[in-house]
């Protein structure tokens, strides 16, 4: 079971280097249609046990041209930025993507790879991150947050 050790600063939270890719079905579809397949996008993501699902910044969606999956509404405590019509929630779209959490050990391959993942679009750049890794991914991991030593481990 690979274990990723992650030092963090209390203000920054537990951040990891990840790659966002097209989801496997879209890769196959593009191959069959003879379309270009964008290179994976390397970004910084926050591990967030408070997030139900993994979210990416709109810029990630644009750069990878992720295919939309379905619309929905996002709820967050205290969020008042949404339209009153939406009850304070925000309309968002889901997109089909893939995710790789990078591990420094290459042999044996130790990255956490999720070939198919539905991600929500959410503006995140203001927080210095481009993705939030939610419980949809963390559910298959063991995450230990050691506050006094400012380090976390993610086993998968």
């Amino acid at each position: 079971m690979p274990i990723l050790a992650i030092p963090f600063t209390p203000g920054g939270g537990v951040r990891v280097q990840v790659q966002i890719t097209l989801g496997r079905p879209e890769v196959l579809r593009r191959r069959q249609a003879g379309l270009a397949i964008p290179q994976p996008l390397s970004i910084v993501a926050l591990l967030d046990t408070g997030a139900e699902r993994t979210c990416v910044d709109p810029s990630v969606v644009t750069r990878l041209r992720l295919p939309p999956s379905q619309p929905g509404f996002i709820l967050a405590p205290g969020a008042t930025g949404g339209s009153p019509v939406f009850g304070g929630s925000s309309l968002t779209f889901s997109y089909e993507a893939g995710l790789v959490i990078l591990h420094p050990i290459i042999k044996p391959p130790s990255n956490l790879i999720v070939h198919e993942l539905e991600v929500d679009e959410l503006p995140l750049l203001a927080f210095g991150i481009e993705a939030v890794i939610g419980r949809d991914v963390i559910a298959s991991c063991v995450l230990v947050y050691d506050g006094p030593s400012a380090s976390a481990t993610l086993a998968y």
Partner: peptide, 15 residues
């Protein structure tokens, strides 16, 4: 906390 609103949520938009 970030969550998707379930379709039967009372705050689901009316328009």
């Amino acid at each position: 906390m970030i969550a998707r609103m379930p379709p039967d949520h009372p705050l689901w938009p009316t328009e």
